[in-house]
Design a protein around this nucleic acid. Sequence first.
DNA 1: GATGAATGAGGATTCATTCAT
DNA 2: GATGAATGAATCCTCATTCAT
Lengths: 203, 203, 203, 203
Amino acid sequence: MSPRTVDKSAKKRALLRASMKVFARKGFAKAKMIDIANEAGIGKGTIYEYFRSKDQIFIDAFHFFIGDLEAEYDKILSSPKGPIEKFEEIIDTTIDGFLAAGDFGGILMDFWAEGIRNHQQIEMEHIFNLKEVYQKYREIIAEVIEDGIRIGKFREIDAKLSAAILIGCLDGLLLQSIMDPKMIDLRKAARVCANIFISGLAR
Amino acid sequence: MSPRTVDKSAKKRALLRASMKVFARKGFAKAKMIDIANEAGIGKGTIYEYFRSKDQIFIDAFHFFIGDLEAEYDKILSSPKGPIEKFEEIIDTTIDGFLAAGDFGGILMDFWAEGIRNHQQIEMEHIFNLKEVYQKYREIIAEVIEDGIRIGKFREIDAKLSAAILIGCLDGLLLQSIMDPKMIDLRKAARVCANIFISGLAR
Amino acid sequence: MSPRTVDKSAKKRALLRASMKVFARKGFAKAKMIDIANEAGIGKGTIYEYFRSKDQIFIDAFHFFIGDLEAEYDKILSSPKGPIEKFEEIIDTTIDGFLAAGDFGGILMDFWAEGIRNHQQIEMEHIFNLKEVYQKYREIIAEVIEDGIRIGKFREIDAKLSAAILIGCLDGLLLQSIMDPKMIDLRKAARVCANIFISGLAR
Amino acid sequence: MSPRTVDKSAKKRALLRASMKVFARKGFAKAKMIDIANEAGIGKGTIYEYFRSKDQIFIDAFHFFIGDLEAEYDKILSSPKGPIEKFEEIIDTTIDGFLAAGDFGGILMDFWAEGIRNHQQIEMEHIFNLKEVYQKYREIIAEVIEDGIRIGKFREIDAKLSAAILIGCLDGLLLQSIMDPKMIDLRKAARVCANIFISGLAR
DNA sequence: GATGAATGAGGATTCATTCAT
DNA sequence: GATGAATGAATCCTCATTCAT
């Protein structure tokens, strides 16, 4: 007879979500394996059936979190819409992606923190290459801005720097939202943000 | 003849700077007391002559870092300049404050991370009340924006939300600068940022 | 039609052999249950259908290994041959027994190690009573030597001690053979060993 | 004022002795760090001030144990004495070295066990190269035997194999002595052993 | 019978903190 | 005042064993 069958992949994802919730709540460093086990309603040892180590959970969480986002941005870029619409969509996508994360938005802090440090371990260096991720985002958005400049919608402005500013704006809003969710209505903020930037960049 | 006197206060500040450098480099959690001692060129035990605990160093570092900034903002606000000039000064002050921090800018990540979590310990809750700090910043900047609206320089816009967006923008730029200092010319970014916002808010 | 019958005893022996191979290769302490399962090509849980515990496997392996050897020695002793022939046969039997073990000769190390320690557990104390086993061997061989002395083939010598020396000699050769199989030709060593001892004991 | 001074080297040696005692008693695998700490009368954490890891203690113990022995053998060989005297001295030195080890003779079992396994880790492979150690011993003793053959004291015999047999003999005696110290009078055994071998090898 | 997912007791190791000098 | 040796609480991870299927 076949032994108990478990959808390992589904359970792994569930475990990942539990881990991310704990990381978001306590921070990676202060999160204990037992906390994750409790959150997931399983035994401590079981975690190791799905992840090699605490670090590995974190790495997997990073990919889980970042994963779809990249695909979404690509989709926006390759759409036939104009730069202003793309601009708005980028903002909405970022905000929506974060809101969808719900409970574990706070994990962003740890991703930033890990992504920013100069890692001694080559492995981590490679995995948390946020530097490159941001570099790419800036390029993507700069292209949209350059398009806008080319077709005369935006005035002549440093596109790369403007992109950095928009990204910064969104990250900074998320930061404030994590800190004080009731204070910041992200959806409204997204609209105002788009408004300010589009006016600010307009010829 | 006076006995060997050590300026405790000066040494404490030196120690604090050493600690912040280490925190910035490795993150609070991964920073070891021995790292701080080595950075400061003293013995591990000596740290405890100046600080009760590792946590206390962190708390003191927070105040050391935030300290003057608040005063600076107050000065800007109470100056007789117009809202646009104030706006520009707020941006410059934030960027300059960060640039002045130099080596230990990376500690911002830890302040954010600590400030954001829901602390179990009441003590920490009180000390790292970033929520309140940001709340206050938003109010200060919103006031400037409202002034601008009142005198017709800025169009009717949600001042509080705009303030949040500006703060987010600055934080987000610092984030990118910590991550990739060579990529982001903060001074130039400050100018572009001011430019975009002032145009974006302009009637 | 008989239901799927598994020869439990045969499978148990096969499992035992797999276990011994693993013990020989990695040592008892470093051998994992999963290693044994893999070596035997079965599931981890199945081992427990045949053995109560890892310790029990080890105990059973010990008996499996030692088992026949005792019978062989008894046969030699009760044969009508002379002491010199018996002497040679004891050496050959020991070496052959070891060579027959083949892949799992290395398990001897663990038997010695376990047999030698002062066990906290009474159970182990009783089971791994190597002390007694060796005591008995010494007596058996001493008897052969005394026979040799009695009939004038061997000179007057401490028979018990000489027996210990011969046993030591054989164990020590096995040790070297386990360590460096290509270096020690055990069969040749057996002959030289017999030669040296018989000459050395000869009147 | 100078802080508490500790002779780190002396304490390390004392700790090593305590560790070896525990290893001898329980075996490396079953020895716990806390056992070592208790035996040494210190705290668990203190061990790590002197040794990187449990493995490192074991490696250091190996060198501590083997260390002088090699020098002793070299001294014997380079002496101007005849092969028979050298032969006797080799036996005595081995036995005396072991007797001097006293309480921690049982650690030999672990050295053998570790030295014999095929190590996955290159590091261990290199450190516990018992294979080479034994190879060298066999060569040293074989030389003595060849000397004896050359000057006509010993008969034509496979010197290398005879050396292996002598070494085996000594190891095997130690084994029995570890197992049952009261049963084996090692000093007497040494004399009988020398006697048998010298007669056995004699022309 | 057979299996492997789940478990938690156990153990090596880390590191903030203490304190004798 | 300064120090670093000593400490043990805390934590990650291993793995023998259990048991539902």
